[in-house]
Write a protein that binds this DNA or RNA. Structure first.
Lengths: 134, 134
DNA sequence: TTATGTGCAAACCGTTTGCGAATCA
DNA sequence: TGATTCGCAAACGGTTTGCACATAA
């Protein structure tokens, strides 16, 4: 488990209700980039009484707490993933496969660009849309 | 005028109707990243009879033709800009100011990363969310 | 003349929210 | 017990679409 999600919530003064426990467990066990609908389905498998509204509320809250990253991969909905280790995304436009990668040279370059312009880098987004070379 | 938009449409077999002429003119004159609503307002100033539905249809079409780039800067709506000269975006999260920049080293690095993994780079998205250094 | 494009209004769909009931601390 | 959270269902807002009319070619 990357974060101790329950501990973080407790320290933030949040009640550890059953719906929240279930959603946190789903997020902790997900190794992909699930949509709210997908998180809802996975949570429902554990406890069918969890509602979509609560999934939305919980996910938004965790996003605001910077525990979740929200992605918009040019789809009509958002995807989420734990804000664990930092990485970028390569999206295969033929298969919709999402590949994670990390490149230190790129990290340094991003920082340098904004620093040279008098800014601090707060957040960023890099996505590479690719196609398998034939 | 960066593209001759009217010529491109004519060659694509599209009728050059008045609503389209107006929308193409608005896009050609816009130096920012307007939302559909903003494009609609600017078009309405020229011809009040142009409808929102037509703006949506035209903008979607131009996006599909790769003439327009669609942006989603973590807002509840999309923004568009002409697919002219290639550049990335820096977003000042305090002022919402959008700054364009271009960096050759970054371009080369992106290509290299995906090529080394056996892919061709088809498209990409890079946004740096920053704050003025104090 | 006719295929294509338009305005209108309704539908769509992911997301948010008001409310009264349930629940954790 | 009381503040917080929940499920439900309705509302929201950007976007899409069916349809009858208008228009460029």
């Amino acid at each position: 488990m990357p974060h101790d999600l329950e501990k973080i919530c407790a320290e933030a003064g949040l009640k550890l209700t059953n719906p929240r426990k279930v959603i946190l467990r789903v997020l902790g066990e997900s190794k992909d980039h699930p949509s709210v609908d997908e998180i809802y389905k996975r949570a429902s498998d554990i406890d069918p009484s969890v509602s979509m509204a609560t999934v939305y509320r919980t996910v938004s809250m965790l996003h605001e707490m910077n525990i979740l990253i929200r992605h918009d991969f040019n789809e009509s909905f958002s995807r989420y993933e734990l804000n664990d280790d930092h990485h970028e995304h390569i999206i295969d436009i033929d298969t919709n496969e999402i590949i994670e990668f990390h490149n230190e040279e790129l990290e340094a370059l991003k920082e340098k660009i904004v620093n040279d312009m008098g800014y601090d880098l707060i957040d960023h987004r890099l996505e590479l849309y690719v196609r398998k070379r034939k």
